[in-house]
């Protein structure tokens, strides 16, 4: 074995350790995926993300065209530009996927998320929570003497900001729907 220059006993030669150490920075993209509304379609999409190691930041799904059996899945994901391209190509080849739109690339999409916040507190904290809710145009949808539930619609950033402000004022629980998004303009 005169030609062999591999260190004996080395295990560094794993076939799968091939990732580029100088990988590009990650980006956040919102994808709208139009799918046939059939059983298991969401599992196909989620399975693709988990099986190939992609990130899901948020995911919403609902039927948008009852007669055409179409559902719209809105996925917020992060990855390097190459990974984002791969995600779109992989989604596109699922047989029951009609169309994949990258709303982040197609122009500044309108993104909205609905959130519910339960805030418990008394005295000044309670008054401050209500005052901030007005500033953020959050509605009170439930009220007891010790708590509020606020309802708010906005961008994920706005919802994050409101949650941050509520935390010292007695934030108990948050429920978020995930992002729904549409591209701007007539098309």
């Amino acid at each position: 074995m005169t030609e062999l220059k591999i260190k004996k006993g080395s295990s560094k030669h794993s076939a799968y350790d091939l990732r580029d150490p100088n990988a590009a920075a990650e980006e956040r993209h919102t994808l709208a995926v139009l799918v046939e509304n059939e059983p298991g379609v969401l599992a196909r999409v989620i399975g693709l993300f988990s099986g190939r190691g992609y990130n899901i930041e948020s995911l919403t799904v609902a039927e948008v065209d009852h007669t055409g059996h179409r559902s719209r899945i809105t996925i917020v994901t992060t990855g390097t530009p190459a990974v984002i391209d791969q995600i779109k190509a992989q989604l596109g080849r699922i047989v029951v996927v009609y169309d994949v739109h990258d709303l982040t690339v197609e122009g500044h999409a309108v993104e909205r998320e609905l959130a519910l916040f339960k805030v418990a507190g008394q005295g000044n904290d309670r008054i401050e929570a209500l005052r901030l809710a007005e500033i953020f145009r959050a509605n009170v949808v439930d009220s007891t003497l010790e708590s509020f539930i606020f309802e708010m619609t906005g961008t994920p950033g706005k919802i994050d900001a409101f949650a941050e402000l509520m935390r010292p004022l007695g934030l108990v629980e948050v429920a978020r729907t995930g992002v729904a998004a549409l591209s701007r303009g007539a098309e």
Binding site: M1, T2, E3, L4, K5, I6, K12, H13, S14, A15, D17, L18
Partner: peptide
């Protein structure tokens, strides 16, 4: 080609004249 190596780092059999 040991995995994780490029093409030009091929190893050959002991009787091959390189």
């Amino acid at each position: 080609i040991p995995s994780g190596e490029p093409h030009n780092k091929m190893i050959l059999g002991e009787n091959v004249d390189t």
